[in-house]
Amino acid sequence: MKMRDIAAAVNGEVLCGAGRLDEEVDYAFASDLMSDVLTIKTNDFLLITGLANVQSVRTAEMSDVEYILFVRGKDVTEEMTGLAEDNGMVVIRTDYSMFKTSGILYGAGLKPVY
């Protein structure tokens, strides 16, 4: 699924990486627990999280995850987008809940990592 279509499906706002919206991602993982994100062995997935702080971006960096979708309309600080930009990530924010976001994207064909 193209990042552009993911953003549109959840009525999301693209906060950084606008030049990479034609990139495709096939898998997603939704969690607020970064320790769980760090146990995922694959890299090529969209991280859906309601945990909006520097450590969620750091966790994505350590996991080689390039796509983050913040849910529940969380504030994403400049420090977070700065770190995401440094690491070439695409960051989207939606007002939708994690359940709604995950349901929409699952229905649209995004696959679970397990």
């Binding site: 607020d32 627990l33 970064m34 320790s35 769980d36 994100v37 760090l38 146990t39 945990l51 702080n53 450590q55 969620s56 966790t59």
Partner: peptide
């Protein structure tokens, strides 16, 4: 825990 850690996963994940 508010930072997304502290769920008792760290040391086992390091070992893995």
């Amino acid at each position: 825990r508010e930072m997304g850690f502290g769920a008792g996963m760290g040391l086992p994940n390091i070992q893995e």
